[in-house]
C-alpha cells in the first residue's frame, strides 16, 4: 500500500484520501462485481428448479 501523498495542504478531506487510494478502489471494484453480478448470477442459475414439462 503506498504512503499517503506528500501534500502541501494540512487537511486533506476523507473523500479525497479514499479516492487517492487505488488499492482500496481495486478491491471495491472486484468485490462489487463479484457479489452483485457473478455471485448473485451463479446463485440464480444454480438454484433453478427442475422443469415439470406440464
Amino acid at each position: 500500500m503506498p504512503e499517503p501523498p506528500v501534500q502541501d495542504d494540512k487537511a486533506i478531506p476523507l473523500g479525497q484520501r479514499l479516492f487517492d487510494n487505488v488499492f482500496l478502489l481495486l478491491i471495491a471494484g472486484i468485490l462489487v462485481m463479484a457479489a452483485i453480478y457473478t455471485g448473485w448470477g451463479l446463485w440464480e442459475i444454480l438454484t433453478l428448479p427442475p422443469a415439470t414439462l406440464p
Binding site: 503506498p2 504512503e3 501523498p5 506528500v6 501534500q7 502541501d8 479525497q16 479516492f19 487517492d20 487505488v22
Partner: peptide, 14 residues
Amino acid sequence: LVVARREQTYTGSL
C-alpha cells in the same frame, strides 16, 4: 504507481 509514489516523482494526487 507504488514506486513513483515512494520515489516522489510527482507531488499531490495522480
